[in-house]
Amino acid sequence: MSSERMPRTSVAKKTRRPRDSLSRDVILEAAEVIAVRDGLDGLTFAALGKELHAHATSIYRHFRDKDELVLELIDVLRAKSYETPLVSSGDWREDLRFTARAIHANYLRYPSLAQQMAVRTTRRPTEFRNVEFALDALHRAGLDDDSAVSMLRVFGNFVRAASAIEAAVHALPSSVRATDELAWEMEYRQLPAEEFPNINRLSDRLLGVGDPQVFEDSLELILDVIELRGQEQRTARAAAG
């Protein structure tokens, strides 16, 4: 009885990326995909190599280490949030409002990166242009140099911190977030009026941590302070003659 030879099973080989086909832009696109999907902890050169079908060591030809990659990614994502180049509208208040809303939207779009976006200094083109744009707006608001650089930090810290808090809410597991939101709707309303009269009276109006109205109201308060300080300094300069 003749035995039949079993056909060989072909083993699919991993398709390797063509040599020299990697670039910083290609790597950054893959880094964004991984960061959104797996968070910053999952953004490793090994993960990038797998995503790009390339050897992990090839990433080092373009980025010295993960920190350089993260800073570059943050700056690129910031640029995306503005959609168009920063051009003054002629209204300092509207200009600062625009930058604040763009940063806020960017953090909510990438909640897993929000904390790093809030605390890191990228030292890259988008950040430089952002700072220049904001300083120009603050000068047009009437602030002198010392007040402008101080308010730049105050305004920037507020926008980043408020945006990061809201992004952190969005990053919570859906069950945890639902429980927290329900607390504002149910548990606060059940507090006794004798012990918590103000909460009891306003419980149906309390805003959740992630309510977008909170950011908008806070932004307008900051802008009101800048406007008032600018008016005071203009008056003082005029009086000094």
Rank of each mutant, 00 (worst) to 15 (best):
V33M: 05
R64E: 14
W184M: 03
G39T: 00
A47N: 15
W184V: 00
G210Q: 07
R19D: 11
I103E: 09
E132M: 11
D91T: 00
F98E: 13
R61P: 10
A238P: 03
A31D: 10
M6F: 02
S150D: 15
Q115Y: 12
L223Y: 08
V176F: 03
D38Y: 04
A12D: 08
A134R: 07
A141L: 07
A47H: 15
D145M: 10
L113M: 08
D65P: 01
F45S: 08
L113K: 02
V214M: 00
A167N: 01
I34T: 03
L221I: 11
Y82P: 06
R24D: 12
R189N: 11
A164T: 01
G156T: 02
G142R: 04
L206E: 02
V26L: 15
A134I: 13
Q233K: 04
A171V: 09
A134S: 03
V149L: 15
D204I: 07
I103F: 09
D217T: 13
L113I: 03
T122Y: 06
P18M: 08
L206N: 00
S23K: 02
V36S: 01
S175G: 03
R205C: 03
V225F: 11
R109I: 07
G210L: 03
E83M: 01
R189G: 15
A141C: 11
L152T: 03
V131Y: 08
Q231H: 12
A240Q: 10
P192L: 13
E166R: 02
I199K: 01
S81M: 04
R78E: 12
F63V: 02
L219A: 11
D67Y: 11
R237D: 04
A12G: 00
V214T: 09
H53Y: 05
Y107T: 10
S218W: 02
V176C: 07
A102F: 02
P125A: 06
K66W: 12
H62S: 08
A47M: 12
D65G: 05
I222N: 07
F128M: 06
L206V: 15
V159W: 00
Q190H: 07
N198Y: 14
P197C: 12
V159G: 08
A12P: 01
S218R: 10
S218G: 15
L77H: 03
L223A: 05
L172D: 06
G241I: 02
T121K: 05
T15S: 06
E72R: 04
A114C: 01
